[in-house]
């Protein structure tokens, strides 16, 4: 059964994430890695999100894009990706 997740991308990524839908439709058994791969294909003009982006699922911090806990997605989950910011 297909599932739908909500997507929040923030931080220094507005350009890359422009046009990315707020929701992603994915297949059953999809993992966070699958969703990140799907998302990478939707970024405009081949841009990429930095490996250092924070990844969180359902309000729980999983790590960074480069290194995070593996998780399966459930229908209605919110995946949050924040490109780190350091402005003072």
């Amino acid at each position: 059964m297909p599932l739908t997740i909500r997507l929040t991308i923030s931080g220094r990524s507005y350009d890359a994430a422009e046009g990315v839908p707020r929701e992603l439709q994915l297949g059953d058994g999809t993992t966070v890695d699958d969703a990140l791969a799907e998302l990478a294909g939707q970024l405009k003009n081949g841009s990429v999100l930095p490996d250092t982006c924070l990844v969180a699922l359902g309000g729980a911090h999983l790590g960074t894009i480069a290194e995070h806990e593996p998780r399966s997605l459930r229908d209605g989950d919110e995946l949050v990706i924040i490109a780190p910011v350091a402005g003072g």
Partner: peptide
């Protein structure tokens, strides 16, 4: 921290909760 029109706030209780290095294991650009 902030960038543009967004910002983040991290509050650390040392030795009990995640420090900044836990959140940013590689120094971001």
């Amino acid at each position: 921290a902030q960038w543009g029109m967004m910002g983040t706030l991290i509050v650390v209780d040392p030795s009990r909760t995640a420090c900044l290095r836990c959140v940013y294991p590689q120094e971001p650009p």
